[in-house]
Amino acid sequence: MSARVTRKRSRPEDEDQELPPTKREPAQDTSSEDNNGGVAADGTGADRQPNHELAKERGGFWFEDGTVILVARNVEYRVYRGVLAELSSVFNSLFAKPRAFRNVPLDGVPTFPCPVVRVSDSPEDFQYLLRACFVHRMINLYEERNPSYYEISALIRLGDKYKITDLYSQSLNFLKHHFPSSFDSWVALPNFTPPGWDVSEAIGVVNLARMTGELSLLPPAFVTYICAKETAPGIVHGITREDGSQERLSPDDLIACFEGQAKLRTASVAAVLRTFNPTVSPECKTISACKKRLRDAFVGLEYSVDDLLNGNPFAKYDEFLLEDDLDACPSCTSTVSERSLKERKDVWDMLPELLGINVPGWNKDPPPPPA
């Protein structure tokens, strides 16, 4: 049986909003940077001359009235210094330092001295930050579209690096929504992953949880990967980011995944067996018939071994039935449903213990809202 990685079909991703076309500087622009070249975010000189044409082809963030040139590796962006400085205290500090500059046209002035700042980020990551700031303008970044894992990862990391609080919090909240600590919230999601994501990208969610200290993301991220039946090969090799770099789990998290998978399967199988215990409801009026139906359902688990060992460890009881329903009386059916819910919640509550990880506050009621 193939791995079930979604609960139901996800809707297609919406297209990202594009920048309106902007007038570009001529390719033969003879304005030049001073001999120091670009300047890195740490204040060191650039080690090579940026490729202006590649910048315009890759990024598209080249405004004819931009007031700063940012250089990520060999890609340049001409944007608005004031916008970034207002959003980020880190950018504000960078722009306040003496910088190399390039004379560029601006509002009829042919030689505007435009500061040049080199950043250490990959162009792939940095472009997501610029799109959030200048296209989406930090307003409801993910309300009407489905971001990729790479976008969320980049914006959490760069939001933290550049202290752009809104960018960081919106991206982190997106992860918390799709990898919730609440059992009820998790089972209510239509998919094991956000729309358009590959299950292997749960590896990155684990690493983001470690980076941000949001450890409540760890159990659902591990469960997502375990549900995919791809634990052995994929989790060892990791995933490749858009810039070509590799992202892997730490040795401790690899151990947690492998050992936790076996423990979780053991606990979930035991929970299903207890669910179908042939004990009828106290209100049952057809005890003999209902006991037989429960025994038949229990025996029928033989035909669901693959689902028990490799499927969703939190599947409802009716997903293991050979027929469409239990065919017991309403009272007994309700009792089995209640047992199923309790058993599944109990396993969820044990997740950190089963995975061998410490998640402070797991299985505790949230504090009441302030009066």
Rank of each mutant, 00 (worst) to 15 (best):
Q127I: 01
V223G: 00
D107E: 12
R24T: 05
F276N: 01
A188W: 01
F101K: 10
S304M: 10
F179T: 07
S32W: 05
G43Y: 11
P195Y: 08
R157M: 06
L351A: 01
A232I: 09
R210N: 14
L172C: 09
A209D: 00
P367A: 14
A221Q: 09
L322N: 08
R24G: 03
R118D: 07
A85T: 11
L94Y: 02
Y128P: 00
E15I: 06
S216W: 01
K56H: 10
Q49Y: 05
F61D: 10
E343K: 04
D346C: 05
V104T: 15
Q261S: 10
E214H: 13
L208D: 11
P233K: 10
V236A: 12
A3K: 04
A202S: 15
K285F: 10
A267P: 07
E259Q: 15
I152D: 05
S171E: 06
P123R: 11
T44W: 02
L354G: 07
E76W: 05
L218C: 13
P360R: 04
P123D: 12
V75D: 04
L321V: 01
Y317H: 15
E76K: 14
Q246E: 13
P194R: 12
A262S: 14
L129W: 08
F61N: 12
G66P: 11
R4C: 02
C133Y: 11
L167C: 13
N173K: 13
G159H: 01
P278D: 08
L19A: 14
D160E: 10
M1D: 04
S120G: 15
E302Y: 02
D306K: 02
N74W: 06
R137E: 11
L264K: 06
S171G: 08
V272H: 02
F298G: 07
P115G: 05
H237D: 07
D318L: 00
P190E: 10
V223I: 15
T275P: 04
P180D: 13
A85V: 01
T193A: 15
V119T: 01
W197K: 14
L87E: 03
D253M: 14
N146G: 07
D184H: 11
R78K: 15
S334I: 01
V269P: 01
S32G: 06
E283G: 05
L321I: 02
A267E: 14
E338N: 12
P251Q: 05
R58N: 14
N74G: 02
T333H: 07
N36S: 10
A315G: 08
I255F: 11
G244C: 13
K23W: 02
L172S: 10
G213K: 06
P26G: 00
S10H: 07
E25V: 05
S122T: 15
A232R: 12
S169E: 13
L341G: 03
F91P: 09
V119W: 00
P110G: 08
K364H: 09
D198F: 08
R274M: 02
D125V: 00
K342C: 06
E338R: 15
E242N: 09
E201C: 11
P352L: 00
R7E: 03
A271V: 05
A228K: 03
H136V: 11
L308N: 02
